[in-house]
Design a protein around this nucleic acid. Sequence first.
DNA 1: AATGAATGAGGGTTCATTCAT
DNA 2: TATGAATGAACCCTCATTCAT
Lengths: 194, 194, 194, 194
Amino acid sequence: MSPLNEEKLEQIHIQRVKEIKEAALKVFARKGISGTKMSMIAEEAGISQGLSYRYFKSKEELFIVLIQEAMEEADAAMKQIGQLPGTPMEQIRTLTQIILDESNKDAFLLIQQGKTANDVPEKARQIIEQYSAKDPIQGLVPIFVKGQQFGEFCAGDPYRLLLCYFSVITGLMLQEHQGDWTIDVDLLMKILKK
Amino acid sequence: MSPLNEEKLEQIHIQRVKEIKEAALKVFARKGISGTKMSMIAEEAGISQGLSYRYFKSKEELFIVLIQEAMEEADAAMKQIGQLPGTPMEQIRTLTQIILDESNKDAFLLIQQGKTANDVPEKARQIIEQYSAKDPIQGLVPIFVKGQQFGEFCAGDPYRLLLCYFSVITGLMLQEHQGDWTIDVDLLMKILKK
Amino acid sequence: MSPLNEEKLEQIHIQRVKEIKEAALKVFARKGISGTKMSMIAEEAGISQGLSYRYFKSKEELFIVLIQEAMEEADAAMKQIGQLPGTPMEQIRTLTQIILDESNKDAFLLIQQGKTANDVPEKARQIIEQYSAKDPIQGLVPIFVKGQQFGEFCAGDPYRLLLCYFSVITGLMLQEHQGDWTIDVDLLMKILKK
Amino acid sequence: MSPLNEEKLEQIHIQRVKEIKEAALKVFARKGISGTKMSMIAEEAGISQGLSYRYFKSKEELFIVLIQEAMEEADAAMKQIGQLPGTPMEQIRTLTQIILDESNKDAFLLIQQGKTANDVPEKARQIIEQYSAKDPIQGLVPIFVKGQQFGEFCAGDPYRLLLCYFSVITGLMLQEHQGDWTIDVDLLMKILKK
DNA sequence: AATGAATGAGGGTTCATTCAT
DNA sequence: TATGAATGAACCCTCATTCAT
């Protein structure tokens, strides 16, 4: 009734949306879109089955929103890299660690789902394509070239080398390291090193 | 008298089974088990919906058969490597190329589906586990050690290095190289090189 | 080609029809119409799946033909009874034994299926009704009345008593006497006796 | 606060379960298990196709639950008989009337379906066997013997006579008395009388 | 005439989505 | 707003029927 109440309601609303998105991300990332049931998301979020529909029109829309946000985050991370401290090598190592970090894992898995699964909403596909078109790797080329000049990186077509490198990274994300060993980033970077 | 001699019928039967398995492999590998509808397989194989059931009891059984065969093939490939010509480095390069080869891709993707999806038949999981227990990477350790002694490979725990290397390979398989560039195997092998 | 051949073919045809009908009767009687698969009939008859369709247009038609014949037989049996030797009591006992006889069992069970199941072809229902309208029990009334005069049968409305009696008989047919005891006909006839 | 207090929800739940069971009993009893489509039950209960599955895991489970309850009821009826007032003859007449009563008819028909149909779930078969093993007729023997001593019942093996009698009763249940005459119980009891 | 492979409509079941409370 | 019951479209699978041989 009172303005205060409305504001509070608004906050609850935002909070709910966040909870649902977090729950959905967790589930979508692991089970894919067709493997995910709305009831799983509801359970993960601790709410009732029907409630998500007050906040998201459909399972598809929820997926699309998550893809959108994941792509934005990934894009932002790629753009940040120039501002990171250290040599090009160190910058790329940091980026690699961010990507492989547990807390970002779900977002990357989600993107992977969006790229490979078949039952992905058309709109989600478009978003992915649109960001891919901006080609985040292209942005890394100058940094890599600098690294080549420093003698940190090996010779060769920078774009091609980076593409290969990030394919490897993305691939690694997709695997459940059931034994809880973690990849040694320096091992991966040998791909780029001299 | 015989409308179609038995041998001919038997051949047709085998042919059909093969067609269905090929179609199913293609679809399962890409869409996962729950993302795959029997109608997709039927369409891919150019047959009607019901016909698969003359040859396979269920979608599950079809998946299990495919997993079984894929694991056998993968296992055989791993075992062969010692007999390949060349130095350890060359042997592992050859193996890598076999794995990344387009014609084997689906089988590896299928295995990946079997490992990570959540709706995998229990029996398929058992088959995977049974082969994994044999730990094919373990079999490569002696070759790798020999390579280390030759000075071809870098120092470090052989098992751990190989595990990392093959995680990278597997990860690469999961990506649709939409642009039709192919990974440069020598780039990957830098991970193992001195 | 030759007339002899045609005649022979005709005989084979008749023989096949008979085999299929016998097989179908056996299965329909036990499993009902929806519980019976055409493949069961084919197996029972020792022929291939598709062959029945050369002789009968459909499962329904096959069922209808069998119902028709079973009703005709039942009707004939009822009509015969007056010609049987012995007193009315003995005649009805004989009729009872015929009905309960193993070799007629399937026909009676089939009729029962036709009366009670839901998925019975309309035409089968009509046939049953048409014979029921002729009311075979009505035909037994004179015999029963004679028995009453002889003092063999109890007093009471003859039609009603006979209806009750044959309901009992029919009911008994429906039960699988798993233990292989057989009903004592004289026990049943106490219903009619003085 | 509570949208609908829990008790109320619980009551609605129980009510729905009851409605579905009643509808299913009615249909199963008449059409058998394979003759019954879930859509028939849904229609009879006035609900949608999918709803039954909130209350019963499958058609099979629903059938099994109904068989279980029917057997329990039948067993209870048999056990009660000793407590009924009157002579043995009167007790058995009462039992007969209970069995033939319209309101119990479906339960008995269901049991009959469970006994004779071929597509009965294994578990349903087990339940029936388990109750049959308790052999309810055996429990009636003492009463029958008392009746023989009273001179109400005829001589002969009590078990055999009762078995025959109840076969007759069961058989009668299976028939649709399309004309709405009802069986005269005293007529049936002549089987047992002196 | 005979076989058995092939088709496709229909039934059981799941689950995204809506609705009554 | 929140719940969870209710709906119905879609998927897996069976089986009556047709078709190629």
